[in-house]
């Protein structure tokens, strides 16, 4: 649909961030070594990008050991910061591979309410379709009003089959039916939607564990992917989301959504540093093809306001 290169699109959102960063960093005087004041400013700027005080502090420490005998320009400072961020992000950039045998590859999508699960599923389905894989959906969010309807609309638009039940139905049994159906039809991928849940609600989290168990009963390898959808506008709480969902549902990878706003998703950096979970893709808009592979360097450069290479 749109021909805008994806990095320009996050650039669009991240631009504002970068503007702020640029503002802050251009005020940094050009000195041979970074003094405390400059380092403070960099640290604060990184915190304002949701990197969190911990990660920001460590980047600051690394910068403090750098020496610039010939003096340093503002641009160079940015390059150095971008490199530091890239170093943290690089190891976690891994796309989703469809390699399950026997088919289908079961992809469970989880997250807190409002993080963008359902929309992400639609985008993911579209992505798989583009790669010439067959997709089937399971409307496992039987809790939120009209969630099933929302996913059905997407399934219609994408012309893919969808397994759904009544509102309030048992999600686990629906998932069971989905895997059975998917296996019978030999579809390549089965994407399972789940109800949004806050990570501190033990009842709902138990349901998730149950879904996992039911999946494993039909196909020991399923779910092949457990994708946690994270909202880029969430702050440090995203770390707690990762921690709890990882323990209960065995998260295998992350998709970061809503990066087309002014949110910088700096939390990705903190998450990569702390948990090292693969980041599969980022969401940069509301249309179907607004899901992009995660490119660490581009994201790092966008965060600090440098043009895409």
């Amino acid at each position: 649909m749109s021909d805008t290169p994806w990095y320009k699109k996050i650039g669009f959102g991240l631009k504002r961030t970068s503007e702020r960063l640029t503002e802050n960093l251009s005020s940094i005087a050009l000195k041979a070594a970074l003094d405390d004041e400059t380092l403070d400013e960099i640290e604060e700027t990184l915190i304002a990008c949701d990197l969190g005080p911990g990660t920001a502090g460590r980047i600051r420490e690394r910068l403090a050991t750098e020496r610039f005998p010939q003096g340093v320009t503002e641009l160079e400072v940015r390059e150095v910061v971008a490199q530091e961020i890239t170093k943290i992000l690089e190891p976690v950039a891994k796309p989703i591979e469809i390699d399950a045998f026997p088919r289908p590859q079961v992809v469970l999508v989880i997250g807190v309410n409002g993080s963008g699960k359902t929309t992400t599923i639609a985008k993911l389905a579209h992505w798989f379709q583009e790669l010439d894989y067959e997709v089937m959906l399971v409307a496992g969010d039987t809790f939120r009003a009209a969630a099933i309807g929302q996913l059905k609309v997407w399934a219609d638009r994408l012309e893919i089959p969808i397994i759904s039940g009544a509102e309030g139905a048992d999600a686990a049994s629906l998932v069971f039916q989905g895997v059975k159906e998917g296996t019978a039809q030999g579809t390549d991928t089965l994407i399972v939607d789940t109800a949004g849940r806050l990570q501190n609600k033990s009842g709902l989290m138990d349901e998730l564990a149950k879904i996992r168990k039911v999946l494993g009963r039909l196909n020991p390898a399923a779910p092949h992917n457990v994708i946690l959808v994270l909202d880029a506008t969430n702050g440090q709480n995203a770390l707690s989301q990762i921690e709890v969902f990882k323990e209960i549902a065995g998260v295998s990878g992350i998709i970061m959504t809503k990066l087309d706003g002014t949110a910088r998703g700096g939390i990705m950096v903190a998450a990569a540093e702390k948990y090292g979970l693969p980041i599969h893709a980022i969401g940069v808009g509301e249309s179907m093809d607004d899901l992009r592979p995660f490119d660490p360097e581009a994201v790092a450069r966008a965060i600090v306001g440098l043009p895409h290479k």
């Binding site: 504002r16 949701d50 807190v112 969430n234 702050g235 706003g261 700096g266």
Partner: peptide
């Protein structure tokens, strides 16, 4: 506003 919002809450 979502109470989970991070630093971006200000811009929003």
């Amino acid at each position: 506003v979502d109470a989970l919002a991070g630093q971006d809450a200000v811009n929003i």
